[in-house]
């Protein structure tokens, strides 16, 4: 990559034709326009969230906070429902991801071993579930018959293994762990359990990072599972709380109680939505630049397949 870049800049110094220069100008413009198009809505939401409710309701906010205020954030942080949702989402994300990663690794390692009898059939059995599923209602009935309805386990167990993640993990094991290493461990007298725990796991740190990221983002962002399997308010993840406030527009009157004026109240109602959008996205967006690299790595492993 580095060599390519230096070679590129060399040839461009030597003979960049007029046509190429025009092309590069258009190309850069295209990318700048796209980047602005992505940023614009984000900047608008963030600006509105830091404005006063009066400015929001009067429609004076565009791309910079007007009458800077933290009113929206204050209202949100005083709201117990949002905090409970946060705590629940954290719980589902941590334990759900743990379950996912363990299950994926213990499935992928045996399936990556060429000498495992039945490897092909079992792999196909997994892949088939990618192409065809029993459907919403039959799955719901299984969850119901297992007694998982309205329990925290319903948010964790059904996701289990993502087939795409399983496939990239198998590819990872196959391409990074030489069979000679496993053979050597066997000759040294290590059982498969021992090899798995002392050789494989320490070598799979990069793939564990990728898996944990993929699964954690899914858990944090998912709402539909909660919508169909959960009934009790106390179990609701953040996304369900968000849906009530942002989409169904149902906000507890208690949140707005100290506001008398109807217009201001309406303004606060909209303002806290902007703030809520920011608060809900911040955890993922803050860690994202640091883990971006791993995501891309994961996608690259996937594309090898």
């Amino acid at each position: 990559m580095a060599s390519l870049t230096s070679y590129e800049s060399n040839i461009n110094k030597v003979n960049e034709s007029a046509g190429d220069r025009i092309f590069m100008f258009c190309n850069t413009t295209f990318l700048v326009v796209i980047t602005i198009a992505i940023l614009l809505p984000l900047i608008f939401i963030v600006s509105a969230s830091f404005s006063s409710s009066e400015a929001v309701i009067a429609g004076r906010v565009t791309l910079w906070p007007v009458d800077f205020s933290l009113q929206g954030y204050q209202t949100i942080f005083e709201h117990k429902k949002v905090w409970d949702g946060f705590a629940n989402s954290l719980f589902y994300t941590v334990f759900g991801t743990l379950f996912n990663v363990v299950m994926t690794i213990i499935a992928a390692y045996p399936l990556s071993r060429q000498d495992l009898v039945g490897r092909r059939i079992i792999t196909i059995a997994f892949i088939f579930t990618m192409l065809f599923s029993g459907g919403l209602i039959p799955t719901y009935m299984v969850i119901r018959d297992l007694g998982l309805l309205n329990t925290r386990a319903a948010m964790i167990l059904p996701t289990g293994i993502g087939v795409f993640n399983l496939l990239i993990t198998i590819t990872f094991f196959r391409t990074t762990i030489p069979p000679e290493l496993i053979e050597a461990a066997r000759i040294d007298g290590a059982s498969d359990f021992r090899t798995f725990a002392s050789v494989i796991i320490p070598l799979s740190r990069p793939i564990i990072a990728v898996l944990a990221l993929f699964y954690a983002v899914n858990h944090w962002n998912s709402y539909f599972q909660a919508l169909i399997y959960l009934k009790d308010q106390e179990l609701f993840p953040l996304q369900i709380v968000l849906r009530e406030i942002l989409i169904q527009n149902s906000i507890d009157a208690s949140m707005l109680i100290d506001v008398e004026d109807l217009v201001v109240r309406e303004g606060l109602r909209e303002l806290l939505k902007y703030s809520l959008i920011v608060v809900a996205s911040v955890p993922v967006l803050i860690i994202y630049p640091f883990v971006q690299r791993h995501f891309i790595k994961g996608m690259m492993i996937g594309s090898v397949k």
Partner: peptide, 18 residues
Amino acid sequence: TYAPHFISTVVIVGMLFQ
């Protein structure tokens, strides 16, 4: 350009409404 991928569906639709 990658960033919006990480925003949840609920928030995306909420953003559209706003």
